[in-house]
Amino acid sequence: MFLIKEDYGIGRPVLNMMREVAEVAQADRANLWHQICAAEDENIRLREEIEMEQTNFTNEKAALSQRLTESEATIACLRSELKAERDRFTREKKKLSDQMMEMEKQVDWVRSEKDEKVAKLSADKKALHERLNDAESQLSMVKARKREELKKLTKEKNTLADRLKNAETSRKRFDDELKRYAAETLTREEIRKSLENEVRRLTQTVGQTEGEKKEKEEQVARCEAYIDGMESKLQVCQQYIRTLEASLQDEMARHAPLYGVGVETFSLDELEALANIHEQSLRQIHAIRQRQGSSHLLGGTSLAHIPGLFSSSPSVAAGLPSSFIPTSPIAPNGAGIRGNGRVNGVASPWFNPT
Rank of each mutant, 00 (worst) to 15 (best):
R291G: 07
S322M: 13
A25H: 11
A123C: 10
S302P: 01
I337M: 02
E72N: 03
E113R: 09
K151P: 04
L271P: 03
D250G: 09
A221N: 04
K151G: 04
R67S: 12
E190K: 12
N352W: 00
K155S: 13
V142N: 09
A25R: 15
L271E: 04
M230K: 15
R291T: 08
G211T: 10
A30T: 14
E190N: 10
N31R: 14
K95H: 08
I306L: 14
A246H: 11
L153Q: 14
K114R: 06
T354C: 04
S348I: 06
K216V: 10
P329C: 01
T265K: 07
K155Y: 06
H296I: 07
I306Q: 03
P332V: 05
S281H: 11
E272Q: 04
G300V: 04
E218K: 06
V220T: 11
K157G: 07
S281R: 15
G319P: 02
Y259H: 05
A84D: 09
E92L: 15
K157R: 08
E136T: 03
S80Q: 04
Q284I: 05
V107P: 01
E20S: 13
R88G: 02
K125V: 02
E272F: 03
C37Y: 05
K146T: 07
E270I: 01
S267P: 00
